[in-house]
Design a protein around this nucleic acid. Structure first.
Lengths: 178, 178
DNA sequence: GTCTATATGTCGATAGAC
DNA sequence: GTCTATCGACATATAGAC
């Protein structure tokens, strides 16, 4: 999927808001004001809020996985470090939470298309990490559990670190993955 | 703090909604409708939303720690199992997320009194678990990090398990704590 | 303690001009 | 593609009667 310049700026704005306060924290009006158009114009690019929310989660997931690259046959430990570093960068350098971690927490209240894209984030991440754990020698039947455990640790570390306003806490919690 | 019958029912209703969709998912009107009064009456018990939100997090934290009891000098492993079981029960038996996990994720958008009570949940839980890890023989300077790591794992496990609609995933992710 | 009534603001969404 | 204008619904919050 490729987006027009304006559509991209809408997504950028919405993503920043959603990563601070979740699905209910971005609005057509506030996005419009921020990028200098009117809310009716935002509706031209994204017909309604669930379409916008689903596009948000989809773009986020694609970018996240693109940033990781394909799991390579060597240097599995380096892949794990890189995976953890993606979360670290989002939290500490960008100052933002994981979009799909936010959406995942409130998933039972989300419109179905948004919930489905949120699930896709976790499914695809578990697959990616599961491959890495298999390369490391984890039994195939345990690799996805190990993957889910690592993702849970990283999502949870973001929440505690952000809540307690202590960036070093994220590093200490995830020290085993670096 | 002790609440009147009506105030308790307000908190019960708000807590259930907040544990599904976060801070923006409960409203005076919806609470009022659910318990059979008018929204103006909800305002009589809780002056405004940030007061209600802070009361929600405070009551949740007190109940949670009361349910755990004091860390005892023996059976540290049993204390850890009991701690993990509290999260398991919330997710699987009650079908709800951790209130302060939700609030923690969106903490940068929360009114200050709510944010402070949310932080208190994590501070007090880290202290409780930190004591248990010390009893287990973890070095005092590492005990709170170990505590934060376990809480992060449990909060993250809730998010992934709920997102993927797979209760068994929570158990598999947290198997090391049981 | 609860009510009616209301003020004031924001929300998502749409019709139709340009 | 963007705009003005507007709708109906819902939000938090308050004044004042009972």
């Amino acid at each position: 999927m490729t987006y027009s310049e304006t559509a991209s700026r809408i997504l950028d704005s919405a993503e920043r808001m959603a990563r601070q306060g979740g699905y209910n924290s971005f609005s057509f009006r506030e996005i419009a004001t921020e990028i200098g158009i009117k809310s009716a114009s935002v509706h031209y690019h994204f017909a309604n809020k669930e379409v916008l929310g689903a596009a948000l989660a989809e773009r986020y997931t694609n970018r996240f996985l693109d940033g990781l690259g394909e799991p390579t046959a060597e240097d599995a430990d380096e892949m794990l470090r890189r995976y953890a570093a993606s979360y670290r960068q989002a939290l500490i350098e960008d100052g933002q939470m994981c979009l799909c971690g936010m959406f995942g927490a409130e998933i039972s209240d989300l419109p179905d298309p948004v919930a489905r894209q949120t699930r896709a984030f976790f499914v695809r991440n578990i697959q990616w990490l599961g491959q890495v754990f298999q390369i490391k020698g984890v039994e195939p039947e345990d690799a996805e559990t190990e993957a889910a455990r690592m993702i849970a640790a990283l999502e949870g570390a973001m929440i505690l670190s952000r809540s307690l306003q202590d960036d070093t806490l994220f590093d200490r919690i995830t020290a085993g993955y670096s």
